[in-house]
Amino acid sequence: MSGKLHSLGQIDRRWLYLTLAATLSVTLMIGPLFPDVPSAFTRPVFDSIENLEPGTPVLVSLDYSPYSAPDIEPTAEAVTRHLLLRGARPVFVSLFFDGNNMYQRLRQQVIDRDFPQLEEGRDWAVLGYKAGGRMVINALNQDLSAMYTADLRGVPLDSLTALGGMRRLGDFPLIVAFSSGTPGLQEWILYGGDPTGTPVAGGCTAIGMPEYLAYFPGQLVGLLGGLKGASEYEAALAAGYPDRDFPRRAGRAMGPQTVAHVLILAFLVLGNLAYLRRPRREGRST
């Protein structure tokens, strides 16, 4: 037994990669949908959007790029879907120059697919990317028109009914920032939410969770972290709107995610057992 365990430590790492890839591929093809429950970080975001009055403008910042899209785009899709279901009016901005492209994907996957009856400018608005990071947020605190004179199509702000008379950041009842780095959620908290008192809800990559959790619950309404946060939000949406059939993009991806975690844990246990069972004469490197 000891010899077998020891030989495990000699396995070429490429077999582990192959095992992981094969297991994930099979799980993806089976497509299991595990039950999920909104956590204490997810539930407040869902509730704060659920409590919005229909017609309320909500500032939504898309601060991510294609690189982090698999981690954060499902969150943006689920929250945008919820905002439009509630009749709220998302006003999209971005601090990332890829933000406009990310909006186009979001529009195709959510607005055009599930809400074809809605009209841009009336039911939602797209102000788009502005360079400057925290300086943009500071300017929005003073006056929306200091940064934006028109939307992405060139329609003047005064003609956008989706804005509903919002003149500055503090007028919005909620800011939702989807962030994969800097500038992003931290800037919205420091320069947007804290000075104006506007509640900030966040969506971030899983790797960003430890950084942003420090702001919850005082400075953040709630936090949706990576695929898990998106999956929980989709589950809350499915429970809240059982008559609507929305795609569970994050929920479907959580199957392979879960299997990968179990596999990595098994590798860790076996690797440590092999290490502990190695013959004394080989010594221990560290």
Partner: peptide
């Protein structure tokens, strides 16, 4: 652990692209 979760998500994203 969050970093590992994030990287697995990116891998799942790529596999979804390849297989889908």
């Amino acid at each position: 652990a969050y970093a590992v979760m994030s990287r697995i998500t990116l891998l799942v994203g790529r596999l979804q692209f390849l297989l889908g």
